[in-house]
Computed example of a mutant assay.
Amino acid sequence: MDFKATLRKKLVVLNSKPVASGVKEDEYFQQYLNEINKKSVTGKCRSIPRFFRFFWRLPREDELLKQKLREETRSNFLQRRSRQLLDNNELKALWMLLDQHQTNHEEQLISYKDFQKVAQLAGPKVKPYFTSMIFAKLQQGDLQGRVSIMSIFNYVMRKVWLQQTRVGLSLYDASGQGYLREADLENYISELLPTLPQLEGLERSFHSFYICTAVRKFLFFLDTLRAGRIRILDILACSFLDDLLELRDEDLSKEIQEQNWFSAPSALRVYGHYLNLDRDHNGMLSQSELAGYGSGTLTEPFLERI
């Protein structure tokens, strides 16, 4: 008997059998599904049960104990994160290790094996910055696959600075939600002023105007939805904070100060413009006074909206 005849006999036998089990399975499934639906309707649970509670809710003003607990918890968390960062002595020790393990003192390059050795010798704080991915990102086309030790050190310095700044800004985050309100920014800049040598010449009576000028710069560009708050991550991502902290440099040239919005000459120049516009000296600008700003190119609809 050939193969075709055998196959035809098998098909005849299969067709002569009763209904396939798959049909029975569908019937059983539909039967049990109807029974479950009836139980869920007639049972006590007529809605989806709550599987979480709002533990993240901010404490109210009258919940003093919860507020104190939250503040203490955030303070301990930020202190713990601050202790995990490299200090100046550890950064100096890291540079010495990089200098000792470079392959060529003239080129200041380091191989991946020596890169791993430095990671082991520098301690646990340095390991997050010494990964294979970071080494690959810092490649600059060296034929032997080496990386400049200056690039590695600058990368670590920049990361440490960003993390330190984030911790410092988080200390002024009163709500603990990752953003700063206008009052929080004012507190941050007012306490930052004494640490900026380039602003030492400002009179104390001018500090309030300077703080207002600096805060409005952040809010105008970063608070695009006009919510009255700015994310800390957005502050770190923009260059405004770099310009503000640049005033720590005691040897900052006059040309750079003129280009820096947060410098004393820039703030005094803006203040002088508004004083000259305020002809009646009442501390406010009317529509006609504001029309004289710059070369007088502001249109009437623009002035009416302001």
Rank of each mutant, 00 (worst) to 15 (best):
S175M: 13
C212E: 15
F209E: 08
N260C: 03
L247A: 13
S175L: 12
L268M: 09
Y271W: 03
Y271E: 03
Q257R: 14
R216Q: 14
R216S: 15
G228F: 14
P197V: 15
K217Y: 04
D280T: 02
D242F: 11
S208F: 14
D223N: 07
R166T: 07
G272P: 00
E182C: 08
T224L: 11
L180D: 03
A237C: 06
S266T: 02
Q257E: 12
Q177D: 12
D223M: 10
G272E: 10
L247F: 14
F218P: 05
C238H: 10
Q198V: 08
V167A: 14
F209T: 08
R181F: 01
T224Q: 13
L192D: 04
D184K: 11
E255L: 08
F220T: 12
Q164H: 06
Y210W: 08
F221C: 06
A267Y: 13
A174S: 15
A174C: 15
V270Q: 06
N276I: 11
L275W: 01
Q163V: 09
F240C: 07
L244V: 11
S175G: 09
L199K: 12
T195L: 13
H207W: 15
Q177I: 07
A214R: 03
L275V: 03
E182N: 10
D242V: 07
Y188A: 00
F240Q: 04
K159R: 15
D173Y: 06
V215P: 03
D184V: 07
S266A: 12
P197F: 13
L169M: 07
S239P: 02
R226H: 07
V160E: 14
R226D: 01
R279M: 08
N276G: 05
S190G: 04
S253R: 13
E250Y: 06
V270A: 06
I189Q: 02
V270D: 11
F209S: 07
E246Q: 14
G178E: 05
R226Q: 05
L225I: 00
L244W: 12
F221S: 11
R204K: 15
F262Y: 07
S263N: 05
L241D: 05
D223T: 11
G272F: 02
V270N: 02
W161C: 15
R269Y: 11
S239A: 05
F240H: 10
R226C: 00
Q198A: 10
L236E: 06
R226N: 04
L169Y: 05
L275N: 04
D184G: 05
E203P: 09
L202H: 13
V167S: 13
L268R: 10
Q177W: 06
L241N: 07
R229S: 11
S239W: 08
R231P: 00
I232W: 10
D173T: 02
L245E: 10
K217T: 13
F221I: 07
I211D: 01
L196E: 04
Y271D: 04
L225W: 02
I211T: 02
L275C: 06
L180G: 00
E246T: 08
F221A: 09
V167E: 09
V215M: 08
L275D: 02
E191C: 06
I230Q: 04
R269A: 08
L219Y: 04
S205F: 03
G168C: 09
E182A: 04
C212Y: 15
